[in-house]
Amino acid sequence: MLVLPAVDILKGQVVRLYEGRAEQATVYFQDPGEAALFWQKQGAKMLHLVDLDRALGQGENTAAIRRVAQSLHIPFEVGGGIRSLEVLQEVLGLGAARAVVGTVALKDPLLLERMLALAGERLVLALDARKDEVVVAGWKEGTGRRVAEVLQAWRVLGVRTVIFTDVSRDGTLQGLDLEAVARVREAWPRELIAGGGIASEEDLLALKALGVDGALVGKALYEGRIDLRRWG
Rank of each mutant, 00 (worst) to 15 (best):
A64L: 11
I65G: 10
I65C: 11
H73P: 03
I74F: 02
I74A: 02
P75R: 04
F76Y: 13
E77H: 07
G79R: 09
R83I: 15
S84L: 11
Q89E: 12
E90L: 09
L92D: 07
R98T: 03
A99Y: 10
V101P: 11
V104T: 15
V104S: 12
L112H: 09
E113D: 14
L116N: 09
A117Y: 12
E121I: 03
R122A: 12
A129S: 14
R130K: 05
K131V: 10
K131C: 10
D132V: 09
E133V: 09
V136E: 04
A137Q: 14
A137T: 12
K140E: 14
K140P: 07
K140S: 13
E141D: 13
T143Y: 05
A148K: 07
E149V: 00
Q152M: 09
G158H: 03
R160P: 04
R160T: 01
V162I: 15
I163R: 00
T165R: 01
R169W: 07
G171L: 10
D177F: 05
E179L: 04
A180D: 01
R183Q: 13
R183A: 13
I193W: 04
A194K: 02
A194L: 06
A194F: 08
G196F: 00
G197C: 06
A199T: 06
S200H: 14
S200Y: 14
D203Y: 05
D203R: 02
L204K: 11
L204Q: 10
L204I: 13
A206S: 10
A206P: 08
K208Q: 15
